Structures are given as C-alpha cells and as structure tokens.
Simulated assay, not measured.
Amino acid sequence: MIRFITRRLAQALPTVLLIFALSFFLLKLAPGDMAAVMAGESGGGSAEYVQNLREQYGLERPMILQLFSYLKNVATLNLGYSYRQNMPVFDLIMSRLGPTALLMLTSFAVSILAGVALGIAAARNVNRPVDRVISVISTLGYATPLFWVGLMLILLFSITFRQLPTSGMENVAAFNEGFARVKDIAWHLVLPVVSLSLFYTAVYTRLMRASLLEQSKMNYVVTAEAKGLAPRKVMYGHVLRNALLPILTMAGVQIGSMLGGSIIIESVFGWPGMGLLAYEALFARDLNLLMGILIVSSVMVILINIAVDVLYAVVDPRIQLN
C-alpha cells in the first residue's frame, strides 16, 4: 500500500504542475493587473507610479520567467506574499484551511451516508410510494442550484423561524470555550452543510438505487439465496459492498466540484474558509493568493482521490493495489 501511495503521488506531480501552469497563464491573460488595482485603491496614480509598482512586483518580466520563478518558490513552500491581506500566502491559506476542510468533510460524509441510506430505502421498495417519494426529492435536489438553496434556508430557518445563525463559523462575541464552542460551531455548520450536501445526496441516492437493483440480479445473489441466507444478510453482507463501488468512484470524481461549490456556499454564509478567500482574492487581482489557493486545492483533491482508491481495497478485498 505504501508503494502504491508513493507511486500515485509521483504520478500526480505532473498533473499539479500542468494545472498550475495553465491557471497561471489564464490569470495573466485576464484584463487588468495587480499594479492597476493597487493604484486604484490608493485613489489613482500617475503612469510612473503604476510602472514602479509593476517593476516592484516583477510584472514587467516575461510570463515564462515569472512562472519559473514562482515554481522555484513553491518548491520551498514559499507561495509569495499577499499585498491585499498583508501577510504571507502560505500562512493565510493555512488559517483558512481548517474551516474549509470542516465544511467539505462534513458535507462529504453527510451526502454519502444520506445518499446510501435513501438509495437502499428506494431499492428495497422499488415502484412503491417510498421509492417514488425518494425519486421526486432526489430529482428536486439534483436540479436546485446551491446558492438558491442556501438563500432559501437562511430566509426560512434564520429570518422566519430564527432558529439558526445566518452567517459566520461561530459567535465570536460569546467567547465560548470547550464543548460550548464545539456546539456553537456545529450550530453554525448546519445550514452550510445542508446547502452543500443536498445536490450530492441526490446524486448518490439515484446512483445507489440503480447500483443495488443491478447487483441484486447478479448470479452470486441467486446462489446466496439458494443456500438459504436471509434476505437481510444477502443485502448487507454481499450486495451492499459491491454496490458501494460506484458510489466511491463518483465521490472521488466529484470532490473537486464540491470544493468549487464550497466557494459559493462560503460566500453565501460568510464561512471563513478558502472559498471566501478565493472570492475576495479574485476581485482584488491578488494573483499570488489565487495561485496558492489553487495549489492547495489541487493537492487536497489528489490526496482525497488516493484515499478513495485505498477504500476500494477495503470495501472489496478482490481489488489489488498495484
């Protein structure tokens, strides 16, 4: 397993470099630059002032030289300096990584567990009212935009019923500690997690239902039933483990889109994570910060996909990690 993980990490390195290079050039080709933004925020400036800023931040150098210089710094975990936030990019990202990881991992777990449970319920009651209700709910969840769900949840549970907080990660003014702080963060986490996981729960529900129905027709199920095994043991001891493999595949593919969806959710709920930070950096033309967030996000997606590959072997021992 260690050899497999090491090889996957080595294979992922060119992918990260390619993503980084393409994004670097795309951001450079966008209209405007950091010097113009800084001059505008300071109330305007002469052409000489803008030119001095461009020289100070190395914007006059050819893009390929800027790319190589930045890659050399990244190799030493030097992601540059954020002029907007007035602190090193690496420190800034690390301070926001925890909230984003908490939001993503919680949403990931909720969507997987809820999707599997609903998919099992639908498959065991196929073409019955339970199956139809779950199918309608999953279709609505699949078709509803994330930002609209977030706004409607705020309107309903925060403004109308006043039961859940509208934004933020915790009530800073309360100075909570210990379990009280954990409870406060969990209370603030409810609406963002529901908003982010709704779409993916719908996807996993439909996929789990289809996978269970397909596996239930396989020869090994007929053999297990012919041996006299109880239906519940056949379902949870044999069919479910094989049906989970497509769920793991989809989860690994969609972790990147979930990270992108967290940008929307963090912006709607004011969640202090990397998504909100990327949103602010984009409008500030903070290229160093954007590239740093991109690198960390790419590494997160790759590591989670490797973890999914390892889970394949855990769920199905027949799969060998070569």
Rank of each mutant, 00 (worst) to 15 (best):
L17T: 11
L17F: 14
L17R: 09
L18N: 06
I19M: 15
F20A: 03
F20M: 11
F20G: 03
A21L: 13
L22W: 08
L22G: 13
L22T: 15
L22E: 09
L22S: 11
S23Q: 06
S23D: 08
S23L: 12
F24D: 11
F24S: 08
F24N: 10
F25A: 07
L26I: 15
L26T: 13
L27V: 11
L27H: 07
L27E: 06
K28A: 14
A30P: 04
A30M: 15
A30L: 15
P31S: 09
P31W: 03
G32N: 05
G32V: 03
G32K: 05
D33G: 13
D33K: 05
M34Y: 10
M34N: 01
A35I: 03
A36V: 11
A36E: 12
A36W: 06
V37H: 09
V37R: 08
V37L: 04
A39H: 02
A39L: 07
A39E: 02
A39N: 04
G40N: 12
E41G: 09
S42G: 14
S42R: 13
G43Q: 02
G44Y: 00
G45I: 05
S46Q: 10
S46R: 07
S46N: 11
A47W: 09
E48N: 07
E48A: 15
V50A: 01
V50R: 09
V50G: 00
Q51M: 10
N52S: 10
N52W: 05
N52G: 10
N52A: 09
N52T: 10
L53H: 01
E55F: 03
E55N: 12
E55W: 05
E55V: 06
Q56N: 06
Q56C: 00
G58I: 04
L59Q: 10
L59M: 13
E60M: 11
R61A: 14
R61F: 01
P62K: 08
P62Q: 07
M63D: 12
M63A: 15
M63L: 15
I64S: 12
I64V: 14
L65D: 12
Q66L: 06
Q66Y: 11
Q66D: 08
L67E: 07
F68G: 10
F68R: 11
S69P: 02
S69F: 12
